[in-house]
């Protein structure tokens, strides 16, 4: 049984759109870089919504073609790792990705049943609504960036009112706090 861990950047104002613009000074640095490395290198595969897939595949393909930077190992791992993409509009995907079919929750549940390390989901969006409702997300790692930007695009728009369990708090010198939550109704409690 593999876990599904979601890692997402959000402003204090609840904004999840364009963190590369408002979050960059806070999200990069030795400590967050190490955290991100550990999170990615520990994962078997990425699970992505369509928009995140399009943004990340374009960005990391371009980065791999440019001069290697201090995160070259991370860039290489991002390009190499298997990905699963949920989309109702895409008909084909590249970037070592597999397109999920109409039964997204069923397929994700099947993926989780396989042995190995966790699945990692970057970004939040419409896919989270069904994943949270189905109890398929085991951990949310919410990076709270100390900027007040309002939406934008909102964190967990229109999700049902759900409870979370705080598992861990990590604070970086830049003022970013990573809150790790387990959504209610996931894990062993509902395994039966």
């Amino acid at each position: 049984m593999r876990k599904l861990i979601e890692s997402t950047f959000v402003s204090l104002g609840g904004d999840i759109g364009a963190p590369q613009q408002w979050g960059a000074p806070y999200l990069f640095g030795p400590e967050p870089d190490e955290y991100n490395r550990a999170l990615l290198f520990g994962a078997d595969a990425l699970l992505l919504g369509r928009k995140t897939y399009e943004g990340l595949s374009a960005a990391y393909t371009a980065m791999a073609a440019g001069e290697p930077g201090p995160m070259a190992d991370f860039v290489a791992a991002m390009n190499a790792i298997p990905k699963y993409v949920a989309s109702t509009t895409l008909t084909s995907v590249g970037w070592n990705a597999t397109l999920l079919g109409a039964d997204v929750t069923g397929e994700v549940a099947e993926l989780k049943k396989q042995p190995g390390n966790y699945l990692l989901k970057y970004g939040t969006g419409p896919l989270d609504r069904v994943l949270l409702r189905s109890g398929l997300i085991d951990e949310l790692r919410i990076w709270i960036v100390p900027v007040t930007n309002g939406p934008g695009q909102r964190l967990f728009e229109d999700v049902d009112d759900i409870g979370l369990t705080l598992m861990n708090t990590t604070t970086f010198p830049s003022g970013v706090v990573v809150l790790t939550y387990a959504p209610a109704g996931t894990g062993a409690d509902t395994a039966g």
């Binding site: 900027v147 007040t148 930007n149 706090v177």
Partner: peptide
């Protein structure tokens, strides 16, 4: 909201 930076 106007963007603004805060310090933790």
């Amino acid at each position: 909201s106007v963007p603004g930076d805060l310090a933790l």
